[in-house]
Amino acid sequence: MRIAALVLMVIGSINWGLVGLFKFNLVDAIFGEMSLLSRIIYIIVGIAGLYGLTMFGEKEIEK
């Protein structure tokens, strides 16, 4: 579960980096601008980010 959340957080951060640097949204480019599928992906990435907050305060992240 943690690995999946980490992968989704990395994907989200890369997408935001592309938006900030080049004004290019990779998710929208692949799935269509604000299509239902892209919105679902944003929701899943957001949930992964919230789950990632639970990793703060832990001394070691288990695999």
Rank of each mutant, 00 (worst) to 15 (best):
L36T: 13
S35P: 07
E33R: 11
A48Q: 00
W16P: 02
I41H: 06
F22V: 12
F24A: 10
G46H: 09
R2D: 03
D28W: 06
L18W: 14
I40S: 10
L21D: 13
L6W: 00
A48M: 06
G17E: 07
F31R: 04
K23Q: 11
T54K: 03
G46C: 12
R2N: 03
A5M: 05
N15A: 08
F22P: 11
V27K: 06
F24P: 05
K63D: 04
M1T: 06
L37K: 13
K59M: 04
L26W: 11
L18V: 03
M34D: 14
I14V: 14
D28F: 11
S35N: 05
Y51P: 01
S38K: 03
A4N: 09
A29D: 07
L18E: 13
I47H: 09
L53T: 09
S38T: 10
K23G: 12
L36Y: 08
R2S: 00
L36P: 11
E60C: 03
K59Q: 03
I47R: 01
A4W: 01
I40V: 14
T54L: 02
G49W: 10
N25G: 09
I44H: 07
R39G: 11
E58W: 01
I44N: 08
G49P: 07
A5Y: 05
G57I: 00
F31A: 11
M1Q: 05
I61E: 06
V10I: 07
M9L: 05
A5Q: 06
